[in-house]
Design a protein around this nucleic acid. Structure first.
Length: 863
RNA sequence: GCGGACGUGGCGGAAUCGGUAGACGCAACAGACUUAAAAUCUGUCGAGGGUAACCUCGUGGGGGUUCAAGUCCCCCCGUCCGCACCA
């Protein structure tokens, strides 16, 4: 018996698949379409185990759906713009384009070696001018349609990467890539007005349009959009004289608690609020205060430690419900300009921040909400604000109302007085898409001193990136700013000298529509409407949870914009979403604190030693594989040692797909053993399909035959459901179980064995396709197992005539009956009461109750 | 601080509707084959007691509902994730 040799089998079948053009997207009008997509990779240079897991899952789905009779679209491309290419240029001197495309070539080879059922004819990279010309076209249409805005904006500036970061790219006040503390800068920026879609992006999370999405992702998006209901109201300045322009309209604040207005003791504005700016121009001390607050930065520690500070303005405002009362106005460091109106009224008794501030500046603290079952005299605010439920007091016309009643009544009164109105506010901010980088899609705009910002005429697209010597990337900043040959162009409107926009798009734009391009990647239009209608939305999208907010929210918004322009017919791009867990590995550290590669360490009896020196090694926690901690295992090395099928099998077998899976040497050994065991089970039966007609069941089957047939059909049934529900680990367990039964079935007829081996080959095919083809060929199967239908379970074989029925006495299992499946309650009761073990436990007791659930359980309650 | 998820053998994890807890794999142990090792195969494998049949306990802790709870309800502890001065 020969051993299974993946080194020969895997390339052989990859070649056969290619020769048969097996993975070309089918377009059979008699079949349903199914679009399965894994988040496309950034071409970093080589694939890692996370890719293996992600693409193995997508491949299981693609192969399964193909076998189930769908036209399957399963494409691959490259998220190819982005900073690492420029960083590489700085470090290695290679041009970003050369670096990127060399990486793509290397990774394509690696992915193809995984044997993925991908239609490579549809491949593209977002850095291909053929791709980004359409992105530029759409942007011009978006601009025309009013989805785009250019505005002065305080931006998150990453001082290391020398670029602007979106809000979402700032993590704990630091740049998501560089880790450098983010600074505030004011720049003129391009924005996509995602806030216009906030309400619908939110609604779709709840109204069933995203039924196939995980709850946690929907929740994160819900929180991110951050809808809050309240009211906007106007405070008038208490002054006899006319105020200059910025102050003439008074002070507009946003609140969710207008019911607490009678507890207001001050108003506050953000340090970058126009009113603050106005007074700072006249008051150097205020200007200094603002500057000091800005220096504090947005870092996490800064925010946590920052004490509430304010600077009193030389004006006060009148209370909207009681003009005889005036409130002081402060510039305060804890008010955010980008939320609401950038101004608040402070009600210290019922808001912790306001209370901290009031204590520091010795302002009134008037309770206006009385907690339930509390006497008004007992309502004392010390150093903790009361934010719970209650009834209103000290509040004039609101007294006695609940909070909700008070909110409505206050808004009504404000509205009647023309001083305010109900308002819905969102936490979501518009999407800043300008990046001061070279390696991105150029923004098709031209700046003219006379005409302003002018779109590049459609006929002049694409605006391609200029060729810049690789040495230019050693200089900080954006090389496009210095590329005058490219930058200086005549204005398309008036023809006078003008300048190209040198910002490029955030790469999240590139990934916000690639799925639509895949439906017809060669189309002359950005998206071919007919193809899009055929394939969209993506039926199953698979990727990491790290994209729960950024990529997925942008893609949802972008799709809505495309729909408005008639490019696609759907507003939600991804019908079902699956977020897979990471691949982790134990970490190893030498006594000197150096990280060690798993390959350089040997673990025996729980003790790790350095393979080279024999010295003990500290075993650290199991963490996500990362280069910095060296706890990485190379897919290439694993493929060489064990074959890609074993690697695919292992990453799918050991944990539920949504959870992290720990890579272990013994685990991949186990996967490798399985390959051998399948092959050893199948290979003695070469040609087993000769004379086997699956549709003609022999009539002379013995009990072993029937038992194996039950196992075969039961396995088909459960594995089918497991794959449908992304329970790959359970499907794997069922395959192990079934394999054991097939191996032990020695007394079965040739027909029944052929049926079992046929099912086995097809059931393993989505997981370990090369071995499956090898088995199929050996057994005498027709064509490729890839092109063979999924097995179907015979329902008659799923129900058995006998069932084992546990019998409990007082809820404790005392016996197991084997009874005919159609035995009625009386029969079951008689059988249970006749069982010796049951009789023993009933001795000397009185039966109080008998619970008999046929097919499930018997419980006899005694006293 | 707010929001969410999770907690089951030595380990990863099963238990689909409230109905046999621990499927399947890993590790470990024992045996077969072998001069030997590797590979492979067979068996054992939650804890405690008992020669055994079998009994008791057991799903983070405490309480509750139920004939019956890993599963439902209440309280607590722990771990992980997201957001975080959001008015």
């Amino acid at each position: 018996m020969t051993r299974y040799n993946p080194k020969e089998a895997e390339p052989k079948w990859q070649q056969r698949w290619a020769e048969a053009n097996a993975f070309r997207t089918a377009d059979d009008p008699g079949k349903e379409n199914y679009f399965v997509l894994e988040m496309f990779p950034y071409p970093s240079g080589r694939i890692h185990m996370g890719h293996v897991r992600n693409y193995a899952m997508g491949d299981v789905v693609a192969r399964f759906k193909k076998a189930r009779g769908f036209n399957v679209l399963h494409p691959m491309g490259w998220d190819a713009f982005g900073m690492p290419a420029e960083n590489a240029a700085m470090q290695t001197g290679a041009h970003p384009r050369e670096w990127t495309y060399a990486n793509i070539d290397a990774m394509r080879t690696q992915l193809q070696a995984m044997g993925l059922a991908i239609d490579w004819a549809r491949e593209f990279a977002t850095s291909d001018p053929d791709y980004y010309i359409h992105e530029q076209r759409m942007f011009l249409d978006f601009w025309d349609a009013g989805f785009v805005e250019r505005r002065e904006s305080v931006v998150n500036w990453d001082p290391v990467d020398q670029t602007v970061l979106a809000n979402e790219q700032v993590i704990d006040g630091k740049g998501w890539r560089s880790g450098a503390p983010v600074e505030r800068r004011t720049l003129s920026q391009w924005f996509l007005k995602i806030t216009d879609a906030a309400e619908d992006l939110l609604d779709a999370l709840d109204d069933g349009r995203l039924g196939g999405w995980p709850e946690n992702v929907k929740l994160m998006q819900r929180n991110w959009i951050g809808k809050s209901k309240g009211c906007k109201l106007q405070f008038n300045f208490a002054t006899e004289t006319d105020l200059p322009a910025p102050l003439a309209d008074g002070l507009s604040v946003y609140t969710t608690r207008p019911d607490t207005l009678f507890g207001a003791s001050f108003c506050g504005v953000a340090i970058d609020h126009p009113h603050a700016q106005y007074f700072a121009d006249q008051d150097p001390a205020l200007a200094a205060f603002i500057k000091e607050c800005q220096a504090g930065g947005t870092s996490e520690e800064a925010i946590e430690k920052a004490e509430k500070r304010g600077y009193a303005l030389p004006v006060s405002v009148t209370h909207p419900f009681d003009p005889s009362r005036t409130l002081p106005v402060y510039v305060a460091n804890f008010i955010l300009m980008h939320y609401g109106t950038g101004a608040i009224f402070g009600c210290p008794a019922h808001d912790q921040r306001d209370l901290d501030f009031a204590r520091k500046y010795d302002l009134d603290v008037t309770p206006v909400v009385l907690p339930p079952n509390t006497a008004p005299d007992a309502m004392v605010i010390d150093d903790e604000a009361y934010t719970g439920p209650g009834t209103l007091l000290n509040s004039d016309f609101l007294n006695g109302m609940t909070i909700d009643q008070g909110i409505s009544a206050a808004i009504d009164r404000l509205q009647a007085a023309g001083q305010g109105e109900g308002h819905t506010n969102f936490r979501l901010r518009d999407w800043g898409v300008s990046r001061q980088r070279y390696w991105g899609c150029p923004i098709p705009a031209i700046h003219c001193d006379d005409c302003g910002v002018v779109p590049v005429p459609a006929a002049d697209l694409p605006v391609t990136l200029p060729d810049i010597p690789a040495s230019e990337f050693q200089v900080p900043g954006n090389p496009l700013d210095r590329a005058d040959d490219w930058r200086l162009v005549p204005c398309p409107k008036c023809g006078t000298p003008a300048r190209r926009e040198t910002d490029t798009f955030d790469t999240f734009i590139d990934s916000s529509w690639y799925f639509a391009r895949f439906t017809d990647p060669k189309s002359a239009r950005p998206v071919d409407r007919e193809a899009a209608d055929r394939w969209l939305p993506v039926d199953q999208y698979i990727g990491g949870i790290e994209h729960a907010i950024l990529h997925l929210l942008y893609a949802r918004y972008f799709t809505r914009c495309m729909k408005k322009l008639g490019l696609v017919g759907v507003d939600e791009p991804f019908a079902d979403l699956f977020t897979q867990g990471m691949v982790t590995h134990a970490t190893f550290q030498s006594a000197d604190g150096d990280w060690l590669l798993p390959d350089d360490v040997v673990v025996e009896n729980g003790q790790a030693r350095d393979l080279a020196t024999g010295r003990p090694v500290f075993m650290g926690p199991v963490e996500k594989m990362s280069k910095s901690k060296k706890n990485v295992v190379s897919p290439e090395v694993i493929a060489t040692d064990y074959g890609v099928d074993a690697a695919r099998w292992f990453v799918l077998s050991d944990s539920p797909p949504e959870r992290d899976v720990e890579w272990t040497a013994s685990g991949i050994d186990g996967a490798w053993r399985l390959m051998g065991r399948i092959w050893d089970t199948v290979s003695p039966h070469a040609g087993a399909f000769a004379g086997f007609d699956p549709h003609t069941v022999p009539s002379d089957l013995n009990e072993h035959d029937i038992a194996l047939r039950r196992a075969t059909h039961g396995t088909i049934d459960t594995i089918t459901a497991d794959i449908e529900h992304f329970r790959f680990n359970k499907a794997v367990a069922r395959i192990y179980e079934f394999l054991g039964k097939v191996r032990k079935a020695s007394k079965v007829s040739a027909w029944v064995r052929a049926e079992a081996l046929s099912a086995l080959s097809r059931l393993i095919a989505p997981f370990i396709p090369h071995l499956a083809e090898e088995c199929w060929e050996l057994l005498g199967g027709t064509g490729l197992v890839y092109q063979t239908d999924w097995p179907t379970a015979d329902p008659d074989l799923l129900v058995s005539d006998e069932v084992s029925l546990p019998v409990q006495v007082n809820g404790k299992k005392r016996a197991i009956l084997t009874v005919s499946a159609d035995l009625d309650k009386d029969g079951i009761e008689a059988a249970a009461l006749a069982d010796p073990a049951v009789i023993r436990h009933l001795e000397g007791k009185t039966i109080v109750k008998k619970v008999i659930v046929p097919g499930r359980i018997v419980n006899i309650v005694v006293k």
